[in-house]
Nucleic acid binder design. Structure first.
Lengths: 168, 168
DNA sequence: ATGATGAGTGTTATAATATAACACTCACTT
DNA sequence: AAGTGAGTGTTATATTATAACACTCATCAT
């Protein structure tokens, strides 16, 4: 009666990704109901495709992936869905990659730090309260009014470092 | 014998922008000599164009602006110069705008926080040591190896806030 | 019921951003 | 004098994103 072991390619090592996805989609659905906005089939599908992994996905990759199910899909189809999902805080736009990744923090404060692995492409969200605190102070000192924040760190994640060093 | 008053459009309110530019270019020249790399005429010109303001400039804007002096300029001309300038830490790429801005911190630590004004488009660099410290700690806790950082805050700068409220 | 409205989508076209690939020059080396 | 590497010229093309306009359909006021 066990869920079969996943091929377990890249997504985080020991995590139940199905749960990950279903939780994200459930939360998204609930949030949209509460907010009185529509998570239409297209938007839902795009969100699901983004959550297929923890990697940042490009808009045109999404387009390719959605085409089998939606032959009519065009760039605007994707970009509109992405705009909606970003507005609702359901995904992050990864500015330094021109790509998109699922967001776990939609319900809470949406602004997080992104750790982007250049090896496996996984993006980890971290709320990093200390950083945000220091940042808020710095911004206040500059008399600056914030609209949005992008804090993106590129490098190599812990898993990849381990994997690489294990190979030697 | 005074320097004539500048039209003073947008660039920061009370600052001597000529000095700003000449210092930046001097520093760049010196750094390139020290490092044994070539700040060729094209690269110098692009750097100068970027320093024409404190706004983030798009690659194709640079292309348009360099054409009067360099009819042969093509996208590659600009992108190559930009690549060089970024490698040398002489400019920042502003990820959230796909644009470029002069960097004052080339000689020191290059990683800074960028405050991007959506009203006047000026970009302010801040070293924000407290933020960087907290960030370093957070990254260490995540066992992440950093290659590069982008910390970009969009909003309205102090000057614009003041100007706008003065109008009321 | 009727038609006005607005959100969402379909569709075509095009704008804006960025890179690949190959040829050429020129200074410097061997 | 040939070999090398950095920088540039040039053409073509890939990638990312938006504009503009038409259509559908549910909702709502008349």
């Amino acid at each position: 009666m066990n869920i079969p072991v996943e091929p377990s390619q890249n997504p985080p090592l020991e995590h139940d990704h199905k749960k990950c996805v279903s939780e994200a989609l459930d939360t998204a659905e609930q949030l949209c109901v509460v907010r009185g906005v529509q998570l239409t089939p297209i938007r839902h599908q795009v969100l699901e495709l983004i959550w297929a992994s923890h990697k940042a996905v490009k808009a045109y990759e999404l387009l390719d992936r959605i085409k089998p199910q939606m032959d009519a899909a065009k760039p605007a189809t994707i970009y509109r869905a992405l705009d909606f999902l970003i507005e609702q805080g359901l995904i992050h736009r990864v500015e330094s990659l021109n790509a998109f990744v699922g967001c776990n923090c939609s319900a809470h404060q949406h602004e997080q730090l992104l750790l982007i692995c250049n090896n496996c492409q996984d993006v980890e969200e971290r709320s990093a309260p200390k950083v945000m605190q220091a940042l808020a102070l710095e911004i206040k000192q500059a008399d600056f009014i914030v609209h949005s924040k992008a804090i993106e760190i590129q490098g190599v994640c812990a898993k990849c470092t381990k994997t690489i060093s294990d190979q030697s």
